[in-house]
Every structure is written in C-alpha cells, then in structure tokens.
Amino acid sequence: MQEVLNKKNVEKRILAPRESRDTIGRINVSNPRMICRDVNVYYGDKQAIRNVSIDIGCNEVLAMIGPSGCGKSTFLRCLNRMNDTIDNCRVTGEILFDDKDIYDSSIDVVPLRAQIGMVFQKPNPFPKTIYENVAWAPRIHGIIESKSDADEIVETSLQKAGLWGEVKDRLDQPGNGLSGGQQQRLCIARAIAVSPEVILMDEPCSALDPIATAKIEDLIEELRTQYTIAIVTHSMQQASRVSQRTAFFHLGDLIEVGATEAIFTKPSHQLTEDYITGRYG
C-alpha cells in the first residue's frame, strides 16, 4: 500500500506545474569556461529545453543526467551549435564562450567547433584509415603542413586517447575495423587532434562493454587536466565516477545542479532524489 502511494506521489511530482520547476543549486562556478543563460531550444513549435542556465568550469567534468527525452543531449549539442544541422531547431538565450555569445551572427561555427569538439554516442570513425581519421581534421584547419607534423599529431592524439599502443602497427588499417571501444577512443583522439578547449561527449559509453567503458572513464579523468569536458550519460554510476559537477535534467528543465557528491548523497529536489534512487527513469 505504501508502495502504491509512493508511486502516485512520484507521478504527481513528475507532472507538476512548470512554475515550480526552477533550478535548485549553484549554477555558477568561480572560473567558468562556458556560461549559459536562459537557453531555450525549440524543435518547430515544441519546446525541448526551457530556461536552462548553467556554467561549465575550466578543467572540470560536468555530467548531465536525466531520463530519456529530458533534453540533456539537445542542450549538449547547443554548446557547439551542432543543432544548426537540424532544420527547424531554434535556440534562444545566450551561451558565452570567451565572452562571446556563440549564437551571435558574427560567430563562425567552423572555428567554434574546432575549439569545442564532440564525441558522439555511437562510435563514428570516418571510413578511412586510422591515420587519416586523426590527421584529417588538423589538415583541413591548416594546423599541420608537413608529413612529420601529421605523424606527430597522430601519435600524440592517439597516445592521449590511450590507443597508440594498440594501433601503432596498423595505422593504415580502416578505422571501422577496430572494436567498439577502440573506435570510440579513436573518435576521442580525432576530437583532441585539433586541440579543442572543450570536449562534449554524448553518452560516449552507451554502446560499449564495461571494460571499454572503464578505459574511457579513465581517459576522461586524464583529459580533464587539459580540457573542459561536458558529458551526457545515462549511467548514474558513471556520472558519479567521472564528474565533479552534475546537472539533472527533467522534461526540458534543469532541475538541479551541484557538486556530484552532493547530488548523489543528498539531493535537494524530490525529482532528483526519485531519479537517482531509481524510482523512475
């Protein structure tokens, strides 16, 4: 009986009116790399994200969690304007990067995306060699000119991604021939080859087994020293393992944000608590 009542309460809270869904917790940090204020995203008439304001600090890992369809991936894709590729997608509010709104008309998305790299949910290496996968982006940006530059950048990027030892003898093999976890690390190597400042990761481990996941998580921990990382994940364990701050999204609202430890030990909002204790989601 108690159980049933609890469930009803949860449902009531999930469907609670919008007004009571303001963000709880500290959204700003002392040394922000990106500052988002009142970000709204619309797909056509449908609003996918409502008034999200959050800072992403330098050299921190920000985890974004929440049930499916809560808008966390949508928000992540706003951060390097990947949503531009979706026809009827509209973004309002401001996202500051180097004190400039990235949605300002004076901003060129090509250099922006070179500074804010992205790793996707499904490993998507180019159908080219491992070497080309890493070397292509620096080449089109003009970062590398000679073959030796390229060799160097391929080696350092693969080393940073923890893949060098496994692939150094077969750089001319197709990137798609690697295992899922290796492919994902190749994608990370590809992202860091252009020396971005922020790396966005959209559920990078959802297609991987636990061993490959552990490798990537270790890698994220290492990358944090040089890069700012925003990661969307479905796994709360992963969020608690890799991140310093966690943001909880629900149905397009940023419900709660705070230090990861605090979120997972004593969440302030009832929805957050319900989610991380597994009552829904």
């Binding site: 390097n80 990947m82 590729t85 998305v109 090509v110 250099p111 922006l112 995306r113 070179a114 500074q115 790299g117 992205m118 790793v119 996707f120 499904k122 998507n124 290496p125 180019f126 159908p127 292509w136 982006a137 089109i140 940006h141 994608c187 590809r190 992202a191 080859a193 252009v194």
Partner: peptide, 12 residues
C-alpha cells in the same frame, strides 16, 4: 553520423 563526425571537428 559521418556528417556529424566531420562537422564536430569543425569542418566546413
């Protein structure tokens, strides 16, 4: 996904 991958590293 190929298009996204290429766009994600900042290609035109």
């Amino acid at each position: 996904s190929i298009r996204e991958a290429a766009l994600g590293v900042g290609s035109s």
